[in-house]
Each structure stands twice: as structure tokens, then as C-alpha cells.
Simulated assay, not measured.
Amino acid sequence: MTTSIPILPNIIENLGSGIIIIDKSDNITFINSIAEKLLGLKSKDVLFKPTNHIFSEKIILDILSSVKKTEEALNYKIAITKPKRRNLTLNVAPIFDSSEKYNGTVIMLINSFREKPIKFQLLKQNQKATIGTLTSWVAHEVRNPLTSMNLHLDLLKEEINENSQNTSKEIVELIETLEQEVERLNNNLNEFLNFGVISSSKKKLYNLNEVVKSIIELVQPEAEMARVDVVLKLDESIPKILIDVAQMRLMILNLIKNSIQAMPDGGKLEIKTEKKNNKVNLKIKDNGFGIPKEDLKNIFDFLYTKKKDGTGLGLTISKKIVKEHEGDIFAKSQVNKGSIFTVSLPII
């Protein structure tokens, strides 16, 4: 007999931030204890009531209205005066149902006086344990049904192929949509699980150029479909460095995919390696839509994303991998001109 663990409420409480969830009618459906303390109220007094019962500041109501209208996340620093004056970081993101229709909004309130610069962070002393527990739970409770769904979809496709003359076009399209959604969920799940298990204990001396070349072989078809020209400027004289090859592949793949996705109308992707000041540097440059200045400082933060289908984990994972290798990663970007991601790794 399996005992169900109420893990989600525990994690929401341990985030160290105020969490409020409102439905599509702008009524409050959830508020955690930290939000209660920050706003000086009790959940029993505000649950299932309109948001103006907890927020009197017009700017906050305008932000909530904007997120609902545009279905895009927003991040602001605000000041509230009740129950006392506080500076808060307000992160607001839309919630979508299984049909990808707007279904509500989640609000995260971070006490700016206590926070380290805008981080979606778990309480430091509990972070590794909480993520490890959550990863194990997700791996079991989500991976298993997902595998089952894949198997049943394969069986259903076989049945349809055997009776293709009696199968309508609509049914075939529905099966294809299901396959795409299962694949998307599987990709998101893999990204989350990668975040929980990253470890660079399998390091060996290896040439970074070889890692880059292997990744290019993998993404070349995707780049061609996106009409993105890939240009390699690899310094063949760079020395081997101590890396976990599998994790380095994952990091570079994340960065390259991000760059390709930033060029929906096609463009140029330049990948460069060089030796500089006892470091091997990797630069990934695109001429895509760029990142706004106000978002650039947050892009490596846990769960931070402006993509509708994003998880907010890809760049967090990339940074974690680089830090495991005692390296640095940073980004420069200009809106409508493109971005440059630079990874700097030590030569041992």
C-alpha cells in the first residue's frame, strides 16, 4: 500500500516566498502563510473573494490585469504600505489548463529586504533535500504514467494503421496531437529531472571542440528547418580540459536550442571557442529577438521564464553545470539584435 505524501503544500510553504493563486474570475483560491504575514491578513478572511480584498495598490491590480490579458509573466519591484511599508518583488505568471487556455494567475511575493537579488530560491538549508525529494517523487509519479501513455499510443497507432480505410482524418490528427503533447511533457520532465540529479563526478580530460561538434550534428536538422545558418569558429589549439562530457553536452545543447528558438524567422548562429587567460571560452552568438534589459539579470534564476511553453529550468541547469566545473557563464543581449552567451572554463 502506497502512502500519499502531501509534498506540494510543503514545497509551497518552504519556498520562502508568499504564494497567492487566483482563478480566471479574479477570485483568491489559495494563499500560503508567508503571504499572510507579508500582507497582514488571514486566509479565512480572503479566500474566494476578489483580489482587491488583499491589494489596494492600483499598480498591482494593473499588473494582474495585464498578465491576464497578455498571458505573459511579469516581474516588478513594488512598495506596499499595509500592514506596514515593505519593498517587495512581485512575480506574476499565468496558469493554463490542459487545453492551454488561461485558467488563472499565480503570484509570488518576495520580501526584497531579506532576499538575495531576485532569486526564485528555496530556503537555503532545505534546498538540496527538497529538490531531491521532489525529483524522486516526480520521477515515480509522472514518469511511470507517461511511459504507459506512450505504450498505449503506439498500440492505438498500430490499430489505426491496420484499419486505415475506416479511420477518419480527424482521429489521425487527434493521435498526432496526443503524441506531440506527450513528447512535450516528456521533454519538460527530462529538464526537471536533469536539474535534480546534476553531478560532475565523471570528469575526464576532453576537448571542448569535440563536444561542440557532436552537438552540431544533433541539432543541424533543427537549425536547417528553422532556416538558421550555423557557423563554427573553433580554435583547434585549445587544450583538453577536465569536464563531465555528458553534462557539458547538456549545457551546450540548452544554449544552442535557446539561440535557435530566438530566431523564429531564421538567422545566424555563431559558435566560437578560444583560449584566454588560462581559460577555455565558449561563445554562442545569435541575431535573434534579444532579451530585454530588465529580464537579462533574471534569466538564470530557478523557474524564471517568459516563454509560454518554457519550464524556467534550461538556463538554470546550464549555470549549475558550469558552476560544477568551477566556471562562469554570463550573457549580453540587445533587443532585436541578438544575444551572446559566454561560458568560461578553467584549464587544469
Rank of each mutant, 00 (worst) to 15 (best):
T167Y: 00
N126E: 13
R143F: 02
D154R: 09
N150I: 08
S136P: 07
S164R: 05
W137H: 15
N150Q: 10
E159T: 07
G132Q: 15
E100A: 08
L123F: 14
N161M: 06
K116L: 10
L109T: 00
L74F: 02
E141I: 04
T89S: 09
N87I: 15
W137E: 09
V138H: 06
R86M: 15
N126Y: 15
N75A: 11
F96W: 09
N144Y: 04
A129L: 12
I107Q: 04
G132L: 12
K77D: 15
L122R: 06
A73M: 09
L151S: 11
N87C: 12
R86F: 08
F96I: 06
L90T: 04
E115W: 01
Q121V: 01
M149P: 01
E141Y: 07
T135R: 09
I80Y: 05
A93M: 03
L123C: 08
Q125A: 13
K77L: 12
E115V: 05
M108N: 01
Q165G: 08
V92P: 01
K119L: 12
K84M: 13
K77G: 10
D154H: 09
I160F: 06
K77C: 06
E72F: 07
H140D: 10
K82N: 15
P83W: 04
I171P: 02
L146C: 04
T135H: 11
S168R: 01
Q165E: 10
A79V: 15
L134V: 13
W137F: 15
T147F: 01
N75P: 00
I80L: 06
S99K: 09
G132K: 14
R85E: 14
T105F: 04
E159I: 07
T135N: 12
R86T: 07
G104D: 03
P83F: 06
S164G: 04
S98M: 11
K119M: 13
K128T: 12
V106M: 06
V106N: 01
D97C: 03
A79M: 11
N111H: 14
N103K: 15
N166Y: 02
Q125C: 08
N103M: 10
K84S: 14
E162S: 05
S136H: 14
H152P: 03
L109D: 00
K101H: 13
E72A: 13
L90K: 00
E162D: 05
R86E: 11
S98T: 13
E72Q: 15
R86D: 04
N163Y: 02
S168E: 07
K124G: 15
S98L: 12
Y102R: 07
N144W: 00
L174Y: 08
E170N: 02
P94Y: 08
K157E: 07
E170W: 03
Y76P: 02
I80N: 00
T89Y: 03
H152A: 07
I171E: 06
I95D: 10
K169R: 08
P145L: 10
D154Q: 11
T147Q: 08
L122N: 09
V92Q: 03
H140T: 12
M149Q: 09
S136L: 12
N163V: 00
